[in-house]
Design a protein around this nucleic acid. Structure first.
Lengths: 155, 155
DNA sequence: CGGGTTCTTATGGGATATCATGGGAAATCA
DNA sequence: TGATTTCCCATGATATCCCATAAGAACCCG
């Protein structure tokens, strides 16, 4: 399996539940994390979600600061205060919390976007907008900035 | 086997399945990737497909940016959000997803085009047009480098 | 060299499993 | 005790598995 890839849009039911895409569940199962790790993105209206691989990435960030230092404490509050650990029920569904609702603007549909080591949870329309923007940025990043490497890119 | 070479056009069946050319399957088997890795091309109406070798190429591009940064997120959405990991069934067929259909315009036939380390998935007519254009460009590029004499016809 | 025979491959279709989704009932909580 | 959450089962749609077949290629062997 190649991490979280592709994107899917699923309906929210009357109880606030939504199916996590089966292929994402398969990745999570292999990762071994209990439930799902979620954290609000600091720079867009989405929630990052994943398992141990995502958590490790987050922890790596706070390790840059010495524990007990004011900086570390502030970062820890910001990171873990914005986190949740929702359960996944027997049918592969999670419930969308108020925190996720508020941060994303989700009402009745949810878009899951694979990003390899994590995936994001979006309100579908907001995702479409972000995606268009991201594609432009990606194009610019890939064509312009090539700091180290020697040769150009394949046709 | 020397990578993906030559091109083939196969029919799509009523269930949306299409046979992957046997020679391509042989390359994939040797590559060892589970299923097939597909990503929409950002500059033409085709889908890039392959195994670990292609995936490595894609991953290399996002490694230049720190994870969790806005840049990395944008790139990951553009790359992995536009990717898929279709299965290959016991008879060597894959199903053409809606994403591939939308991006390529495929309806009832699929052209597979070998490109050494990857192959592309095209709607046959669109491929013919692209190919004609590509040959012109290739000719122009080659004429600058060496005393180009005769051009053979590819089979 | 030739003629048959076996393999491979692309394609079709029926049967089965998986998935997203809905809803009832039991459990939990305040 | 009333409201919410968790567990369990139902269902339609889709995807997957498995087998069948025909055409062609490769192969074998006299």
């Amino acid at each position: 399996m190649a991490g979280f890839v592709s994107h899917f849009t699923n309906r929210l039911d009357a109880k606030g539940r939504v199916s996590i895409p089966a292929s994402f569940r398969a990745v999570l199962a292999r990762d071994g994390f209990e439930g799902l790790y979620c954290i609000s993105s600091s720079h867009c209206q989405a929630v990052d979600a994943g398992g141990n691989e995502l958590l490790a990435e987050i922890e790596k960030r706070s390790e840059a600061f010495a524990k007990l230092s004011p900086d570390h404490d502030a970062l820890a509050v910001a990171l873990f205060g914005a986190s949740e650990n929702p359960k996944i029920d027997g049918d592969g569904r999670m419930t969308i919390s108020d925190m996720i609702r508020d941060h994303t603007g989700i009402t009745d549909q949810v878009t899951f976007v694979g990003m390899k080591y994590k995936f994001q949870i979006w309100e579908p329309e907001k995702f479409r907008e972000y995606r268009a923007e991201a594609q432009k940025r990606a194009l610019a990043m890939l064509s312009g900035a090539s700091p180290a490497s020697s040769q150009g890119e394949p046709a």
